[in-house]
Simulated scan of single mutants.
Amino acid sequence: MSYNIADEDQELLQLLRRGSQQAYMAVYKKYQRLLFLYAYRKLNNQEEAEDVVQEVFISFWNKCETLSPEVSIAGYLYRAVRNRALNIFAHREIESKYLESLDNFLDQNQESADSLIRERQIAALIAAEIDRLPAKMREVFELSRKGHLSYKEIALELNISEYTVATQIKRALKILRTKLGACIFLNLFF
């Protein structure tokens, strides 16, 4: 009568189902190296392959008493290694997507922060140039732009004609365009 590996595995499985540590060690010695090579080929990472094999053997020991007597030890162990490798691949993909998402978030916030800084610099430049306008012109301009008053309301408040209000605002805008044009251009693009 010939003796083959399947018969040996069936005997080991029977012993394992009864809690035999010697049978477990025999299975470990028989399959550990082969499973490591299999896991390493799949994962291309020695530490991950070692961890997978260790986890598979721990799980195998915890479940061996409840395994069906018809189970192929080799098939069970290889399938368990393959499934854990697939879980690692899925985790890597999720991790990669998370890192990509984080990079995008950081890039957007960097751009957002840069925009806010530029906006504040431009606002400071505009405020400084408005402060340099002649007093009456500045007052008319600020009532129009900051106070959101119409030309008529400004004229009534300052006791001047609407034509004077319009002229003062046109002159203020011309001065600001001239002085701020180059500054804003340089601030926006450099």
Rank of each mutant, 00 (worst) to 15 (best):
D114V: 02
R120T: 10
L125A: 11
E70H: 14
R79T: 10
F36L: 07
Y76N: 01
D51M: 06
R33P: 07
N45H: 13
E93I: 08
R41S: 12
S115N: 15
Q54D: 10
E65L: 06
Y76T: 01
P69M: 00
R118D: 11
Y31W: 05
W61G: 05
L99G: 00
L34K: 13
Y98V: 05
L125Q: 14
Y40L: 12
L34E: 12
A124I: 04
Q121T: 05
I117G: 02
R82H: 12
L77S: 01
E50C: 00
Q32K: 07
Q46F: 07
N87F: 06
I94C: 03
N109V: 03
E95S: 15
A80F: 06
Q54L: 11
S112G: 08
S96D: 12
I58C: 08
L102I: 04
E65F: 04
S72N: 13
R33T: 08
A49W: 09
V81L: 04
R118C: 10
I73G: 03
P69W: 01
Q54I: 07
S96Q: 15
Q32G: 01
E70Y: 10
I122M: 09
R41H: 13
L102F: 09
N62F: 04
R79S: 12
R84I: 00
S59F: 06
F89C: 09
I122N: 10
E70R: 12
N83K: 11
K29S: 06
E48Y: 06
K30L: 05
A49V: 02
I58H: 01
R79G: 07
S68V: 04
N62A: 08
A127D: 15
K30C: 03
Y38V: 02
K63W: 00
E55S: 07
E129I: 03
D131W: 03
Y78G: 06
D114C: 02
F57P: 05
E95I: 00
L125P: 14
V52H: 06
E55H: 02
